[in-house]
Computed example of a mutant assay.
Amino acid sequence: MNADAKEFQIPSNLNASTPPEKRGASRDRVRLMVMDRTTGKTIHGQFTDLASYLKPGDLLVMNNSRTIPSVLRGKQGTCNVEIRLSRQLSDRQWDALVLNGLCKIGEMLILENGITATIIGNGSERPLVRLLFSKGGVELFNMIFQFGEPIRYEYIDTTWPLETYQTVYATIPGSVEMASAGRAFSWRLINHLKKKGVQTTFLQLHAGLSYYGDDHWPTPSKHPEQFHISEQTTEIVNRTRKDGGRVIAVGTTVVRALESASDHKGQVTPQDRLTDLYIKEGYPLKVVDGLLTGFHEPEASHLHLLTAFIKKDYLLKSYHEALGHEYLWHEFGDMNLILPMENE
């Protein structure tokens, strides 16, 4: 995608730096661009009209992982350091990005409440390192939630509270970044969809860092993420497919989890494990029919995943159209629905 996407650049005025609620609207008052997977045709509308593009019996699968305040401040000797947690490995070990510090094995970082973190090795890929905290369990998480901050990338110039980085249905803490495709949902809209016969269910995939800084993005195959799919959710997904309904993932994290948990026939089973599945152009989707997501940078692996749903040419054409219509990018921005719509 990178070579084809050089012409695709996001003007700074289209980087959504402010949540809709702070722009005088509700969180579901964002725009929606709908793409037909088959023809590439686009429709421009509002997210509150989502039900008009779905049918009774369709299933929305949502990621209810809750965002933690994963940016910690500390000291390394006399130097201030910033730690961005990426993935929990055990009660006391995390993969993390350490900024402004010396990333050598044995180096100790001093945090709040008397807690320290020692660099004990390399993380799953560079520039991540493996940290061993001096405390675990409730003590460590209390420190994280008391002193940590949500990750804020350079296009956001205001400090927003942690609740700004949650979906309304987030319940299971673990993601270091918000599962942002679901942010635009309000309970009012979810209830409206249910009244129209659209089903909903949940899984958890704890999202790791999506960006390391300095134009460095994670390598998907070296970026495992923990996911959990319950027996109840697998039953709903499998029944929907059997009954001819469409399974629509709310976010790329949901696609990754569902496809990781399915066999070659698309039958999903309950699972609780890591996945390093990399979905890109040519990947044969077995479970998921449609995708609701935000708009992604050309370098991001999330954008590569979209080419498993729609031809690259159609995708790039639609993204240029979105730029022309001034859709907003990133977690506080507008939404994109990719669905098979032909002959409906």
Rank of each mutant, 00 (worst) to 15 (best):
Y212C: 02
T164H: 04
G266H: 00
W160H: 14
G245D: 04
Y211T: 01
W160G: 00
Y155E: 04
I236W: 04
E163T: 15
Q199A: 10
P173D: 07
V168D: 04
G182H: 07
F202S: 01
R188V: 10
P220F: 03
R183L: 15
W160P: 03
T219C: 10
G174H: 00
E231P: 02
H228N: 04
G174W: 00
G174Y: 00
S186P: 09
F202K: 07
A184V: 07
R152D: 02
G266D: 03
T159I: 12
R239M: 12
Q204F: 08
N191H: 15
E231H: 13
Q232C: 03
R256V: 04
M143W: 11
F133C: 08
I151T: 10
F145S: 13
I236Y: 05
Q226A: 08
V237D: 07
T234R: 02
H216N: 14
T171S: 12
T171A: 14
Q232W: 03
H228L: 11
Q232D: 10
V250A: 03
F202G: 00
F133G: 02
D215F: 08
W160V: 02
H223I: 00
I156K: 02
P218C: 11
F185C: 06
R188G: 06
H264Q: 14
R246N: 07
G174S: 06
G251W: 07
K222P: 00
G137W: 12
S210C: 08
T234Q: 04
T159N: 11
P220V: 10
S221R: 14
V176Y: 05
T234F: 04
K196I: 01
T158K: 12
G244A: 11
G136C: 12
L140V: 13
V138K: 15
T253I: 13
H264L: 08
S230C: 05
E154G: 13
L132M: 13
I190E: 09
K135N: 10
A261K: 04
A261W: 03
I236H: 09
F227V: 00
V237P: 09
V255E: 05
G251Q: 09
R246K: 14
Y169P: 00
I172R: 00
Y153M: 13
A184Y: 07
P218N: 07
L140Y: 14
I190L: 15
D263K: 12
Q226C: 09
A257H: 08
T252N: 08
T233S: 15
E163A: 09
F202Y: 15
D215N: 15
R183M: 14
G174D: 02
G244F: 11
Y153N: 12
K195P: 00
V176H: 06
V138Q: 13
T240M: 06
R239N: 11
G136S: 13
K222L: 15
S260K: 02
K196A: 15
S180H: 07
Y212D: 04
T200P: 06
V237C: 10
R246G: 05
Q199F: 14
K194E: 15
R188Y: 13
A207C: 10
G148L: 12
T171V: 12
F145Q: 14
V255F: 05
V168S: 05
V168R: 11
V247Y: 06
K194S: 14
G174N: 06
S221V: 13
K196L: 07
K242D: 11
N191W: 12
Y212Q: 06
A181E: 05
A249I: 10
